[in-house]
């Protein structure tokens, strides 16, 4: 098992955002996580990536307990993540943005990191923009850059937080294409998305988050056909 989350809880004061959540992810799969706003999706990512400490529970990566590790150690152990709101290094070039991730995330020298950054930028179709200042990119390119940074750390587990949010249909298709090309057999993708249709196209498994726990999980079509899921979530989406 690549990722094992057991009994995970997180409260902010008296507000319990994640409550006794358990989840596991195997290499090679694409787990889509959907859920209404406030279901705890982004908090779950912040717990897995190490930005927030959990109030209870454990997180294991390839069998190793990483619950107490800071974000940079988790990154180096193989967790790459994107942010819902892109966090570019605004005063650095696109190339340098990816180079930082390649050098620090995969513990490479500058020379090795350079090669890795070039390969990732080419894969994502961002090579032509590599000399531009990251702060000047369009939304699609910022999302591409987020993805490039996450891929440059050589992740075993890729966490994508609403990376298709705010993009048009063809732009979504572009991003899905990049993720498909980047995924290796030993790598897993966990993809949070508000828009169900995007995930339906790429997810091998779907989990529905509701009230801080997993409401349903399984094959995408079966999960979406589940009457409880339709009640709490899809009903509001007007499917």
């Amino acid at each position: 098992m690549l990722l094992e989350v057991a009994g995970l809880s997180r409260s902010f004061g008296r507000l319990r955002v994640i409550e006794d959540l358990s989840l596991s992810v195997q290499p090679g799969e694409v787990l889509g996580i959907i859920g209404p706003n406030g279901a705890g999706k982004s908090t779950l990512f912040n717990l897995i990536a190490g930005v927030l400490p959990p109030t209870a529970g454990t997180i294991r990566l390839s069998g190793r307990d990483i619950t107490g590790l800071p974000p940079w150690d988790r990154c180096r152990l193989g967790i790459g993540r994107t942010y819902q709101v892109p966090r570019p290094f605004a005063h650095m070039s696109v190339f340098e943005n990816v180079l930082v991730a390649a050098v620090h995330g995969s513990r490479a020298s500058l020379r090795q990191g350079r090669r890795r950054a070039e390969a990732v930028l080419a894969l994502a179709g961002l090579a032509a923009q590599q000399a531009r200042t990251a702060g000047a990119l369009t939304l699609l390119d910022l999302k591409r850059l987020e993805l490039c940074k996450a891929l440059a750390v050589a992740p075993k587990l890729l966490l994508l937080d609403e990376i298709a949010g705010g993009l048009t249909e063809p732009e979504c298709a572009t991003l899905i294409g990049i993720v498909r090309r980047a995924q290796t057999p030993d790598m897993a993708v966990v993809w949070i998305e508000h828009v169900v249709q995007t995930l339906r196209r790429i997810a091998t498994r779907l989990a529905v988050l509701h009230d801080g726990g997993v409401l349903a999980e399984g094959a995408p079509d079966a999960v979406l056909a589940n009457s409880r899921v339709q009640d709490v979530y899809l009903g509001t989406e007007g499917r």
Binding site: A49, V51, P70, P71, W72, D73, C75, R76, G80, R81, Y83, R87, P88, F89, A90, H91, M92, E96, N97, L99, V100, A101, V103, H104, G105, S106, R107, S109, L110, G113, K149, A150, A152, V153
Partner: peptide, 26 residues
């Protein structure tokens, strides 16, 4: 200009983002 330095520049621009790509902030 070193590999440490490029991490420092990333920290300057976005600290949490730098930590997420493996820069050891501490």
């Amino acid at each position: 200009r070193s590999r440490v330095g490029i991490g420092l520049m990333a920290m300057r621009d976005n600290e949490e983002g730098a930590g997420a790509v493996g820069v050891d902030l501490v």
